[in-house]
Amino acid sequence: MLEARLQTGALLKKVLEAIKELITDANFDCSDNGIALQAMDNSHVALVALLLRHDGFEPYRCDRSLALGVNLVSLSKVLRCAGNDDIITLKADDTADVLSLTFENTDNDRISEYELKLMDIDSEHLGIPDTTYEAVVQMSSAEFARICKDLQVLSDSVQIDVTKEGVKFGAKGELGSGAVTLKQNGNVDKEEEATLIELQQNVSLNFSLKYLVNFTKATPLASRVSLSMSSEVPLLVEYKMEAGYIRYYLAPKIGE
């Protein structure tokens, strides 16, 4: 059985907000390592890989690996019934036909209990090859969200060019073109806002902005984001949390 108590329930609410528009149903794979999820969007263009490590919960107990098949829209609806400061406890027994959720307020005088019906989801996991990326950009997650949203005004695609000087996001469309360049600035006073680039080789890649904007729903989870790129391989967008991560992979657009 699974028992996982999350002191900051708001974290789980934010995680659901970050994935529910990209994927509809997914298995939460519970093991002694923690709770993981891997799922592709319906059009097989993007993939979400989530890990909530066991040490982020207190207590965390999972005697036997369990796959909890969840409709993410339903789960996010139930999680909206939890207060932002509530402690959330997830429980499931080995038959895994329901997920029990308990929300306790901080004064411990209001306890709400919900049960969500689970489903059988036949999902196959994809093997993600170990990749040494040619370019890794670390930047403010809020800045990344702003750039994606701004450029979406112009086009449904963005070209990302990374050199050792900086990273340029450019878009061209019917109404015109636009570009935002962030210079590498590791010396700025505000570490949170610095743009840092590790580069083996310059890269220039095209991606769908619709998906990138969707990924930025994870912005409330982390102040920093990393973009890992190599020519003609999927982009990795990673938001690191205190005890885990949310990673998005996006297949590139490639010229014929």
Binding site: V45, L47, E124, L126, G127, I128, A251, K253, E256
Partner: peptide, 14 residues
């Protein structure tokens, strides 16, 4: 114009 690739051409089912 660039064409959207499928993720399945990069990542294979385990």
């Amino acid at each position: 114009t660039p064409v959207q690739k499928s993720l399945l051409s990069f990542f294979k089912p385990k």
